[in-house]
C-alpha cells in the first residue's frame, strides 16, 4: 500500500490462504447452522446439503418455546455495563499515570498487571460464597462488576500508552492559555486518544461477551448469559449440531458487527500506544 513496488505477488496468495484458514471454522459453523440436523451429522460432512432455517427457528424457540432474548439481553447488559465501567475507571487512572506521572508509577502499573496472575478458577469459590451471602447470585449486575475487575488492569495498561502519545507541549500551552482541566481533556486529549479508547472498549466488550466460566457458576434462570444459553444446546439429547451452530452464529453476531465496525479504529488505536 505504502510502497507498491515492494509488493511481492505470492504474498497475496498466502494472505488469501491464511484468511481461508482463519475463516474456515467460522464458515463451517455458519453453513452447518443452515443444514437440517440429519444433514449436519452425515459422514462425510455434506457441504451441498439443502439449506434450511430450522436450526435458527429452534434457536428462537420453535419447539421448545424458550426465548433466546433474555440471555442475549443479559449478555448485552453485562458487556456494555462492564465496558462503560472499565472506561470510566481506566481513563482517569491512565490519565494520571501517563500525563501527570505519579511517583513510583511503574509500581502502580505493576500492581495493576499483577492482579492478572490469579487463576480465574481459583476466584470462583470466594466469589460464589460472597454472592450467596449477599444474595447476588443470579444477578446480572454482579457479573458486570466482575468483568470490570477482570478487564480493568489491561485497560489501564493500554489506555496509559495511548494517552502518553498526547504531546506534552500542547497540554502545557493549553494550561498557559488558561484552559481548565475539562477543556483540555475535551479539546486536546480526547481527539488523540479516541481510537485508542475505541480499541480498548472493543477488547473489553469481546471478553465480557464471551466469558463463560463465571457466568455459568454465578447465574441461573434469570441472569443466564448467551454463552451459558449456548451450553444448554450441547448437553441436550440427540442431534444438536445444527442448533448449536445456529445459536453460536447468532451469539457471535454482535461481536462481529462491533469488530467489523471497529477494525480500522482498532488498528489505528493500537498503533498509537504501546509501541514507542
Amino acid at each position: 500500500m505504502r510502497n507498491p513496488r515492494r509488493v511481492w505477488r505470492p504474498w497475496g496468495a498466502v494472505a488469501w490462504l491464511a484468511g481461508v484458514l482463519f475463516v474456515l471454522p467460522a464458515a463451517w459453523m455458519v453453513l452447518t447452522a443452515l443444514h437440517s440436523e440429519p444433514d449436519a451429522a452425515t459422514n462425510p460432512p455434506s457441504v451441498a446439503a439443502p439449506l434450511t432455517l430450522q436450526g435458527y427457528a429452534e434457536f428462537f424457540g420453535a419447539g421448545t418455546g424458550v426465548s433466546p432474548w433474555p440471555p442475549l439481553i443479559n449478555s448485552a447488559t453485562a458487556s456494555v455495563g462492564s465496558t462503560v465501567l472499565v472506561l470510566l475507571l481506566a481513563i482517569p487512572a491512565a490519565y494520571a499515570l501517563a500525563i501527570k506521572p505519579v511517583r513510583k508509577w511503574t509500581d502502580v502499573l505493576f500492581f495493576f498487571l499483577s492482579t492478572k496472575m490469579l487463576p480465574m478458577v481459583a476466584g470462583l469459590l470466594p466469589v460464589y460464597l460472597f454472592a450467596q451471602y449477599t444474595g447476588l447470585l443470579d444477578n446480572i449486575s454482579l457479573l458486570a462488576v466482575l468483568y470490570t475487575s477482570m478487564n480493568l488492569p489491561i485497560a489501564v495498561w493500554l489506555m496509559r500508552s495511548f494517552l502518553a502519545e498526547v504531546p506534552k507541549e500542547i497540554m502545557e500551552s493549553a494550561a498557559l492559555d488558561g484552559a481548565g482541566l475539562l477543556t483540555t481533556l475535551r479539546r486536546v486529549v480526547a481527539p488523540v486518544a479516541a481510537p485508542g479508547i475505541a480499541a480498548t472498549a472493543l477488547i473489553c466488550f469481546i471478553f465480557s461477551w464471551n466469558e463463560l466460566l463465571f457466568a455459568r457458576v454465578l447465574t441461573g434462570v434469570v441472569a443466564g448469559t448467551a454463552p451459558v444459553f449456548l451450553t444448554g444446546f450441547v448437553t441436550s439429547q440427540g442431534l444438536f449440531l445444527a442448533k448449536v451452530c445456529a445459536a453460536a452464529t447468532v451469539i457471535s453476531l454482535p461481536v462481529l458487527v462491533a469488530g467489523f465496525a471497529a477494525q480500522d479504529k482498532l488498528v489505528q488505536g493500537l498503533s498509537l500506544g504501546a509501541v514507542k
Binding site: F22, P25, A26, I206, L212, S252, L256
Partner: peptide
C-alpha cells in the same frame, strides 16, 4: 475478527 469473535464454546 471472525476467529476472535467466536464464543469459546462454539
Amino acid at each position: 475478527v471472525l476467529a476472535w469473535a467466536m464464543p469459546f464454546l462454539a
